[in-house]
Design a protein around this nucleic acid. Structure first.
Length: 275
DNA sequence: CATGACACCTGCTCGC
DNA sequence: TGCGAGCAGGTGTCAT
């Protein structure tokens, strides 16, 4: 799915249209996206809700209402959001899984080709429970390498898999994990508890850097991802390893290698620079 | 508790 | 040209 930078970009793009609006009619085109609620109940409960905040937590999109309840959207692999002004066109309706009126002729759209994405409505208590299971936000002001290292030091899990574990750290997915490990010069297969303090400092720094740079580039568009404005991101032009298996390492010239040995996900690394 | 298999889905690319 | 296999940015559950 969109990872932290992509979700952050979408949320920033759509926030002005969402915050302050009162929800009207909702339509669930693909009931499979719903998790903890029936279609009828969601449609009934959303009507009249006033959105007071539109934000991101890990890769979750959070629309908070004046009531304290929250609509939580996960885009997973191919989900995308848009606010349409006026009538929906053919493209708006393609792969549409959920929509809700925002008022003033605007419609909030959730499209998803693979339909792996999810929609949930949470009361404050369920949100608290859900949110508490997510690791810290790597771009938060109070985040640092000590907090970072503490999340991983007790597991022998491969550092790359640990980095993508949302209960340990929020928002990092496959692309940015590959990039951060390359920049830090760390072998993705190393057990997390084998990294030194210095290596954790480096990895903390590079993880934050790739995420910030990803946001600056408005995300990575390999195929499906679009910003909240429907445009493509540009971080794909700055990727050092992800998707570049067989090409030369930008640091040393050695051939980058792609494997699927860690958690069956594509891992690309320079086995000379990353030790 | 860690790990791996699998499920959820469609679409695209590649090899034959 | 057609067809099956394999792969894709993610996450939740279940068996081991």
């Amino acid at each position: 799915m969109p990872e932290l930078p992509e979700v952050e970009t979408i949320v920033r793009d759509l926030r002005p249209d969402v915050v302050g609006s009162t929800l009207g009619r909702a339509t669930v085109h693909r009931p499979n996206v719903l998790r903890n609620i029936s279609k009828a109940r969601l449609v009934r409960d959303l009507r009249g809700c006033r959105a007071v905040e539109f934000s991101r937590r890990a890769k979750n999109i959070v629309m908070r209402f004046a009531s304290g309840d929250r609509l939580i959207i996960q885009l997973r692999m191919t989900g995308s959001l848009k606010v349409a002004h006026g009538r929906l066109n053919r493209d708006d309706r393609a792969y549409l899984v959920f929509q809700v009126q925002l008022g003033a002729g605007r419609t909030f759209l959730f499209k998803d080709v693979r339909r792996l994405g999810t929609v949930q409505l949470m009361d404050p208590e369920s949100w608290q429970e859900f949110e508490s299971r997510i690791g810290p936000e790597p771009l938060a002001a109070e985040f640092n390498s000590v907090v970072f290292a503490k999340r991983f030091e007790s597991t022998r899990m491969a550092i790359k898999k640990a980095l993508m574990d949302q209960s340990k750290l929020a928002g990092v997915g496959n692309i940015y994990a590959n990039e951060a490990l390359f920049l830090a010069g760390i072998d993705p297969a190393r057990p997390a508890n084998s990294l030194s303090r210095t290596e954790y400092q480096a990895l903390c720094r590079t993880t934050r850097k790739v995420l910030r740079d990803g946001i600056s580039s408005r995300g990575t568009t390999l195929k499906d991802y679009r910003t909240g404005k429907g445009t493509k991101g540009s971080f794909q032009t700055r990727l050092k390893v992800y998707g570049r298996g067989g090409e030369p390492c930008t640091k040393c010239g050695a051939t980058l290698v792609t494997t699927h040995e860690i958690d069956s996900r594509a891992t690309t690394a320079c086995w000379r620079c990353q030790t």
